[in-house]
């Protein structure tokens, strides 16, 4: 349902712009800082996690093809390349979750002047926890 008030002022030049020109406003990185970087990373990791969900379901479906198919996948999962994918996935999950907490706070008007510090905190913590997780994966062999 469109809840827009009929009396709301409209920027005519934006309304007339093509959809790609309006979309370009989101990826205009000229002169941007941490807030925009946090925003873009949040979208990229979000889209990545949705993609992973479907990938995960596809991988699980190999179970239906029998033990041999599953064992072949497990062998692949132990390759260094796959561990690298795991690291990217874990970072994506951690960053998306931690920055999600940051966005909840900022969205309710809490800590806006500390937003850059909160971003770097979420980013560095995500990297540290990813490193710990990768180490655990490698130790489990």
């Amino acid at each position: 349902m469109d809840r827009t008030l009929s009396s709301l002022p409209v920027s005519e030049h934006v309304a007339r712009a093509s959809w790609w020109r309006r979309a370009a406003a989101w990826v205009d990185l000229h002169g941007r800082r941490e807030g925009w970087l946090a925003f873009i990373l949040m979208r990229v990791t979000g889209i990545g996690l949705v993609f992973y969900l479907f990938l995960h379901l596809t991988v699980l479906s190999t179970l239906a093809r029998g033990r041999q198919a599953w064992d072949a996948f497990i062998a692949l999962a132990r390759s260094p390349l796959f561990v690298a994918f795991d690291a990217v996935l874990i970072f994506g999950m951690l960053y998306h979750g931690l920055n999600g907490l940051r966005v909840i706070l900022l969205g309710l008007g809490v800590g806006s002047r500390r937003q850059a510090v909160l971003f770097w905190g979420a980013f560095v913590l995500s990297i540290v926890l990813t490193a710990v997780a990768v180490r655990m994966i490698l130790m489990m062999g």
Binding site: D2, R3, T4, L5, L8, R32, R33, E34, G35, W36, A38, F39, V103, L106, G107, S112, R113, Q115, A116
Partner: peptide, 17 residues
């Protein structure tokens, strides 16, 4: 409270900076 009001903000935070 309009759909294009406070709820439309995506917390990009560039305004503060």
């Amino acid at each position: 409270g309009d759909a294009h009001g406070a709820w439309r903000c995506h917390s990009v935070m560039e305004c503060v900076e």
